[in-house]
Amino acid sequence: MVRYVIRRILMLIGIVFIISVGSFYLIHLLPGNITTIIEGPGASPANQAKLYKLLGLDRPIYEQYFVWLGNVLHGNLGTSFISQESVASTIRAALPIDLEMIFISQVLAFAAAIPMAMRSARKPDGIIDRIFGAGSFTLLSVPPFIVIILLVLFISIKLGIPHTGVSTYVAFTSDWIANLESMALPAVTLAIGSFVVYFRVLRSDLIATLQEEFITMARSKGISQRRIMWRHAFRPSSVALLGAAGVNIGGLLAGGFVVQFLLAIPGLGYTLIAAINQNDYLLVQGIVFVVSVGVVLINFIFDFIINIVDPRISRE
């Protein structure tokens, strides 16, 4: 186990290193003078000189990278020349919104997917299983942007739940009820997408697990069906579920921008799109780096959880 964790951490460091190189190069891949790209053609020579020095553009590229990496390791992702704000503090302000949104959506998704998959797997191809299966399959084919449109169209407009405009977003600390109201729509949207994946993965694994001999063994002990499902079948069936959750949550961090953009929730995704539109390349670079590292970290954490849940894996 310890050896496994060490190996994974080394791999993690390697991947983060490569991500940092990739993020760093993102700007250098652009054609033209970097200072002009970053600050725009109208930048003053003084600002250009400042940036030139900051990026160490007079030095060889690998040195520039290490200068940049050194700054990043000190939490300095640069200062946006558009907003004049530090990239790190912009990200620090936006990230909690993503995390809250993801957290709520995942609670909803698991709360629906687990009991429904349990119910479905008990009688595969039974009526309930067929209904759940058809429903989840249909939802699988509805992209999140359409979910939002439909939710806004059929629920939000009718019920008067806030659905658009940055002004409607309220921080959790200032008014948590208003905050949850503004989170309802995006969280439900993300939850639907996650639910479909979790339900389908867990159902098929549960069905496979229920064929196993140790389930018959548990049955022969005379314990209840309910106990067999939760105590014996659930845990060995949750490996793929956790794997899917890792990928999916990473995907929400990276792909949450659709929902945020449409509902004007000022999270990382929203900030990223805004930065792209304003050609705020330093901010784009910062967000790409932070999100990529975040995705890798989430996968790492879930790998770790999987190992705890199923002790067979690290032994292999």
């Binding site: 140790f214 063994m217 049955r219 002990k221 014996h232 060995p236 002790p311």
Partner: peptide
């Protein structure tokens, strides 16, 4: 049957590699 299983009749399964719950 559940009320009898375990106390009246119990089974020793043939393959101990598959009949024990691997994660318990």
């Amino acid at each position: 049957k559940r009320a009898l299983w375990g106390t009246e009749v119990a089974m020793v399964f043939q393959d101990p590699m598959t009949s024990l719950n691997p994660v318990m």
